[in-house]
């Protein structure tokens, strides 16, 4: 048996998987390229030179600087952060639920976070910070409701998912109801927000999100080690010394917080939490949860989707949630055809 490649740096001794490393670097490169393209593109097109100049406030075009620094850059950074958060959340919940389709956007957490935010927007006229808080409360509230309803002398993964589906359906209806009953101006904002969009991303949105992720993402990475082992079943995990219940609780808290923060920033965006972790795993082929690769994949997907959403039917701007949803549909079809071929 070959020795595993290990990277040693002082007290740190971690395994290095060449394929995962390559994939990670490739994704990072893709993110950088897409960032530059996204900042260049738009109704006020810029060349690379102008873009770079505007980025570093070195150019002589104040309009370009405004667009780049004031609008496009925050939008792009927000997209990256949101993609990162959603993917990590999905990477947490899919193994927890024991099912690749047990993703937070399917079991209602995303919708619940949206409900919380919508309540702020339509009933209390809240600003971005209040909306973010509303989303987090909504997300946690939904998670609590789903867990309580699914609990019946123990928590079976499948019951959790099914209850989540039911709760998601109800909350989706509630969201539509809130929009219908809201005052005209609030309804506009709400309806737009509900579709998921980066159109109104500001630096303050980015700041709040980045702050939250600075805590949550490292926590998710640290927790992903025991999570990987927990996929072998609770008893096997206890057997190798994992404290299953506390770890699970921590994972749920981090996962819900991630999806709530992401939803607060850009509205409910579907399918990234579902698809990013799985796509990343297919590429890296690594066992275990692959949190970092999933996060990078999510960031890239959202960035790419936002670009498509802006440019596909220009000047009509599609909401990014619609693009990710459609891409998600294609992803599912691809999964299907693979299954067909495998079982045929």
């Amino acid at each position: 048996m070959k020795r595993k490649r290990v990277l040693v740096l002082g007290p740190l001794s971690v395994r290095v998987r060449p394929r995962s490393l390559t994939v990670g670097i490739a994704l990072l490169a893709a993110i950088v390229v897409l960032t530059v393209v996204a900042v260049m593109a738009g109704d006020y097109p810029l060349t690379i030179g102008q873009t770079l100049a505007a980025l570093f406030s070195a150019g002589d075009d104040p309009l370009a600087q405004f667009f780049v620094q004031g609008q496009r850059l925050p939008r792009v950074v927000c997209a990256v952060l949101v993609g990162l958060a959603l993917a990590c959340s999905g990477a947490i919940f899919q193994p927890l639920a024991g099912n690749p389709l047990g993703s937070p956007d399917i079991i209602g957490f995303t919708v619940g976070a949206a409900t919380g935010a919508l309540v702020q927007i339509t009933l209390f006229d809240g600003g971005p910070a209040a909306t973010a808080l509303g989303a987090v409360l909504g997300g946690f509230g939904t998670a609590l409701v789903v867990y309580l309803l699914a609990w019946r002398s123990g928590l079976a993964g499948f019951r959790l998912v099914l209850v989540g589906i039911g709760v998601a359906a109800v909350l989706q209806g509630v969201n539509s109801l809130l929009v219908v009953r809201a005052s005209l101006t609030a309804a506009q904002t709400a309806a737009q927000w509900l579709a998921g969009s980066f159109n109104t991303s500001t630096w303050s949105d980015v700041a709040i999100t980045a702050l939250a992720l600075a805590v949550l993402v490292p926590a998710a990475v640290v927790l992903s080690r025991p999570l990987g082992a927990m996929t072998m079943g609770d008893e096997a995990a206890i057997g190798i010394g994992i404290r299953v219940e506390p770890t699970r609780l921590a994972l749920v808290i981090v996962g819900v917080a991630l999806v709530s923060v992401a939803t607060a920033a850009a509205g409910p965006i579907a399918f990234v939490a579902l698809a990013a972790p799985q796509l990343a795993r297919r590429l890296t082929g690594a066992p275990g949860v692959g949190m970092i690769a999933a996060g990078l994949m999510g960031a890239m997907l959202v960035l790419a989707s936002d670009l498509v959403a802006q440019r596909l039917f220009a000047p009509t701007q599609l909401p990014v949630g619609v693009v990710t949803g459609s891409l998600g549909g294609l992803y599912l079809i691809w999964v299907l055809t693979r299954e067909w071929r495998r079982n045929a």
Binding site: K4, P11, L12, S13, R15, A229, I240, G241
Partner: peptide, 10 residues
């Protein structure tokens, strides 16, 4: 797993 830690992963 029981012989490893956050820093000593392998």
């Amino acid at each position: 797993y029981p012989h490893q830690g956050l820093l000593r992963q392998w």
